[in-house]
Simulated scan of single mutants.
Amino acid sequence: MKVPMLDLSEQYSNIKEEVLTVLDEVMSSSRFILGENVKKFEADIAKLSNVEYGVGVANGSDALHISLQACGVGQGDEVITTPFTFFATAGAIARAGATPVFVDIEEDTFNIDPKAIEAAITDKTKAIIPVHLYGQTADMDPIREIAAKHNLAIIEDAAQAIGAKYKGRMVGELGDTACYSFFPTKNLGAYGDAGMVVTNNPDIAEKMSVIRVHGSKPKYYHHVLGYNSRLDEMQAAILNIKFKKLGTWIEQRRQAADNYTKMIKEALGDQIVTPIEREENFHVFHQYTIRVDKRDELQQYLNEVGVQTMIYYPLPLHVQPVFKELGYNEGDFPLSEKAANEAISLPMFPEIKPEQQKYVVEKIIEFFIK
């Protein structure tokens, strides 16, 4: 049996006719940029996030950069975040002219440790970017308290966590802004690049709307230095179709995660650390990520027997060559480095079949008993 990490073919076959219909409508309308499909999608994502404003942009990386700029982060400022995340989080900080300041993660959730944040704050600190990694929110109440105490902006990196909840509150309403990615592999994925920022702050929303069109308002009159980062009509039309199915797809992911955990625990007990879902959280399982010794050997074995896996973030950001000048060293953030050596993500998508999951777990068991 072959089990892919992600298979979008069944999903597409189920919505193919709708997709082709709306794409024809967009092309027939000759309105390709910031039209009615974008407006509808912005409104729906804002409503899902329990906020007032959605600003569609070209991708999730731009969502982070535009958020930082709209929140007043710039040259000489510092922004606190996690080193165990995709490069775009810290890359956006650096592109804004600010300095990424890293703090370690919680071992059980992979998310930024709120207890480590306050010690990293200086008079240059302007914002915190908590990343809701793999589909579960960071512990936001203490982060919000720290931010309020020190007058810092909170920019949620929610690229992997659309639809997730924290103590009954939605991802998207837990900070000054929240940034979504609709990269094709995401729980709500476009057929190309796409992103969005949501906020409850009308001034920030207005700034972001101007920044995404070269800083122009009215057209051809530029008061801020923006750039071209717009969500196009074709991607928005596709995402409008997919959005209606997001809730169902999340529940399918949660069921698949539950299946994995039950099978792994029953067979291997504590030999494998399975994902936790904190009591106050609603996890959307963008990834199902386990922790194991001999992680690289396990990946190699699973690949040989037809099971595709992914190792996300094998080199934490604080030791990436591009950030060498920040002065961090190996050993500075031991839990992030431990996660980088132990974490491996198993196949996860809404349409994954129980027999596929059973095969994956059987092969993991074979590895541990051989």
Rank of each mutant, 00 (worst) to 15 (best):
T21S: 15
H150Y: 15
S229Q: 09
F32W: 07
T99P: 00
N228R: 10
I211F: 15
A159M: 12
T82Y: 07
K245D: 04
Q287P: 04
E325P: 00
K353C: 01
K126H: 07
P130S: 08
V3I: 04
M5G: 06
R212L: 07
F110C: 04
A164I: 01
K245C: 00
D232C: 09
K353N: 04
I117P: 08
R31V: 12
E25D: 13
G327L: 02
L225P: 00
N259K: 03
T248R: 11
S67G: 14
L335H: 10
V360C: 08
Y53N: 12
K2Y: 14
K294S: 07
T185S: 13
I264P: 14
I211V: 11
F367I: 01
K338L: 15
Y134M: 14
N50P: 04
I211T: 06
E233Y: 03
V361F: 05
G72H: 03
Q252N: 08
F183C: 07
K115H: 09
F183Q: 11
H283Y: 15
E10A: 02
K324W: 08
K219H: 11
T125P: 10
D77A: 02
L152W: 05
A94H: 04
N59A: 09
L6M: 15
E266A: 11
D296Y: 07
V210H: 05
G135C: 08
I276K: 10
P347T: 09
Y301W: 04
H132S: 15
S29A: 13
N281R: 06
E337W: 07
P184G: 12
S13V: 04
Y53I: 13
N151G: 10
M1P: 09
D270H: 03
D24W: 07
L34M: 15
Q235L: 01
L20I: 03
C179P: 13
D24V: 06
G60I: 11
A257I: 03
H65L: 15
S345C: 15
D270C: 01
